[in-house]
Design a protein around this nucleic acid. Structure first.
Length: 272
DNA sequence: TTCCAGCGGC
DNA sequence: GCCGCCGGAA
């Protein structure tokens, strides 16, 4: 496996750093986002916000602005909140343990394990789509609907085996690169994961409107009225050949965005 | 069309 | 457990 990993090695920019913050930013950006898209976003983001303290000191709209085009805007808010917490309570340093990382917003089991393995160079159970593909392909070539409950102990046993634990970074680089290679050569093994499900269409979806509204408000630093946002949204919807958005749906989306902290409202004006 | 170094809320 | 979340490359 290690030899196969070396053979398929991908020289990605975040593989040249061991700063936990820089690694965390890469892990967050790579959540459900393909490697090819992340590269330039990662470099731009770290240039603008090179440290936890820099990100904590930044304004939310500036962070969201740099995130546009990457997708899943929630991740940017969660990352910002994680930086705020670590700046205030951790002297600008991320937690050093898996459990500590897991307690922070936007950081789940995979991301916490990724930071532990790639930044701290300690063994961790890092089960994400490429690792899942490798285990399904190698150990369950015929089975359908294999659950992570079955895979987790296997990944754990492998990761904590001395051969892997001696160099967790190299071990997981190999798994990731082999998994990525598999997807280019055989039908996606992860389709045989029990949790695998197809995503709903983006075109015309609620989340497409969400993203549009976020961009519209970000473009109005001085604020913009709800009515103006709705009118502009409907102009865009009609231009795209879609029906107008009814006010209840629009208000529901705006309520979500306000609650999640994407922008604020002052007497009917939405302000980033 | 399919998928992507997942997470959080329910 | 199930669903919503973003956007574009292939």
């Amino acid at each position: 496996m290690l030899a196969r990993g070396d053979e398929l090695y991908r020289d990605l920019p975040w593989r040249h750093v061991d700063d936990p913050y820089a690694v965390l930013v890469s892990e967050i950006m790579l959540q459900q986002t393909q490697v090819a898209r992340v590269g330039r976003f990662w470099e731009r983001f770290l240039s603008a916000f090179p440290t936890v303290d820099a990100l904590a000191s930044a304004a939310v709209p500036d962070v969201l602005e740099l995130w546009q085009g990457l997708g899943y805007n929630r991740r940017a808010l969660a990352l910002k909140r994680t930086a705020d917490t670590c700046a205030a309570e951790g002297a600008g340093r991320l937690p050093e343990t898996y459990e500590g990382m897991l307690a922070l917003p936007g950081i789940g089991p995979a991301t916490a394990a990724g930071v532990v393995a790639f930044a701290y160079q300690r063994p961790a159970v890092y089960l994400e789509t490429n690792v899942r593909s490798v285990f399904l392909h190698e150990l369950f070539p015929e089975e359908e609907a294999v659950s992570d409950k079955v895979l987790l102990p296997l990944v754990e046993a492998a990761a904590f085996h001395p051969a892997a634990a001696a160099d967790p970074r190299r071990w997981y680089y190999g798994l990731l690169d082999y998994g990525a290679h598999l997807k280019a050569t055989v039908p996606n093994p992860s389709r045989r994961s029990a949790g695998h499900s197809r995503q709903s269409a983006f075109e015309g979806s609620r989340r497409q409107k969400r993203a549009w509204i976020i961009r519209r408000v970000l473009a109005a630093p001085e604020g913009v009225s709800r009515a103006a946002v709705l009118a502009d949204l409907n102009t865009a919807e009609l231009a795209a050949g879609r029906p107008e958005v009814e006010p209840p749906l629009f208000n529901s989306i705006v309520a979500d965005l306000l609650a999640e902290g994407f922008f604020r409202e002052e007497n009917d004006t939405l302000t980033p």
